[in-house]
Design a binder for these strands. Structure first.
Lengths: 200, 200
DNA sequence: GTCTATATCTGGATAGAC
DNA sequence: GTCTATCCAGATATAGAC
């Protein structure tokens, strides 16, 4: 029986996190309520607090998961690979994540816009280190003449800004372009842009 | 005496809007409280509700003002001007607005991320029309051979994404680059990028 | 493990004195 | 015009039955 109980636990925890993601990504931490998460997950409010000690615990579990998934693709960039293709692959991967996981993107955006009160330490440690490594790699590629000389940090920011824009500002994009999937065109544009910026 | 009262009114309304901007831009509509706005503005809670009928009224006054300021620079683009310079001027102007009014940018970002419940109609009307006009203008420039052939919508989105990124994701930028004003470098990068994308 | 009921607190808005 | 006091809805979290 223990196995069955564990399966229920996993299932409910997943349901709570899925519901939390949906609600938090739309309203931010303070704007979200346990009632919403309860309704969304199909569980009762006390039952949610049986699995997570508090509203904040759900939120932080989501953020922790998010940051891991967020940083891995940056770490996966191969220093030995072909520079333009490595950067392009990363950018395209990031764009696909925006299409597939727009709520994760919005959850993160909400947290950052509000001053990142819960993950500021992660930003100034892990994120900073990972990005500095990547920036160094890009600089090396520049110096070796493999890509054009370019500010690596603002290059990275431009990739983030453009990819996340289509997830975070989705309603605005749809208001202008009409309903539908505009990620394909966005990806084309981004690829074109990066090739122009990177090729010598 | 009436004149003095009016001056007090203006002063208090301004104080409330300034405080509201500060609070709403950080916590979003639902995450903000009248108490915070009261503390921030130095007025009492009932006194705030003497000047604005509700919390929502403050928020909407801010958004309305914002959208006006937001769209004007797009309208100011001169169809008769030199295309590359016109687009560049717009982009640089937008970047300067991000530096000077980051809270306005974050207020808007919060609203859009949360699905734009209060301004969706404006997005699908005014914003849409203004952007379509600009896109048409850019297409004409492309066809006339004055700039490179480019997707006008995604060009516009890329300008928005990059300029607003430095306001909305300020804490992240500072976590990576360290404290300081990084708008100058960002502007340089953006200008370089646009010249590469636009020149034939 | 899951529910009903509830304690406790906070927030938006109002009443009424000054 | 501005304040104190207060109402009432809604929110987190807990108690305790099942």
């Amino acid at each position: 029986m223990k196995k069955t109980e564990t399966r229920i636990q996993k299932k409910n925890q997943s349901a709570i996190k899925a519901a939390g993601l949906k609600v938090f990504s739309q309203f931010g931490f303070r704007g979200s309520t346990l009632d919403q998460i309860a309704t969304e997950s199909g569980l009762s409010k006390p039952n949610i607090l049986y699995y997570f000690s508090s509203k904040e615990a759900i939120y932080e579990a989501l953020l922790a998961q998010l940051l891991t998934d967020w940083l891995q693709p940056v770490r996966d960039i191969d220093p030995e690979g072909e520079p333009v293709e490595e950067i392009l692959n990363y950018a395209i991967h990031k764009m696909k994540m925006s299409r597939l996981y727009p709520r994760e993107s919005r959850l993160y955006a909400n947290e950052i816009i509000q001053g990142a009160p819960r993950i500021k330490s992660v930003l100034t440690c892990e994120l900073r280190d990972v990005v500095q490594s990547l920036a160094q790699l890009i600089s090396n590629w520049s110096e070796a003449g493999l890509i054009r000389v370019i500010d690596p940090y603002h290059l990275i920011f431009s990739i983030w800004a453009m990819t996340q824009h289509y997830a975070d500002f989705d309603v605005q994009v749809q208001a202008i372009l009409g309903d539908g999937d505009h990620f394909h065109d966005a990806e084309q544009y981004l690829e074109d842009m990066l090739r122009r910026m990177l090729t010598v």
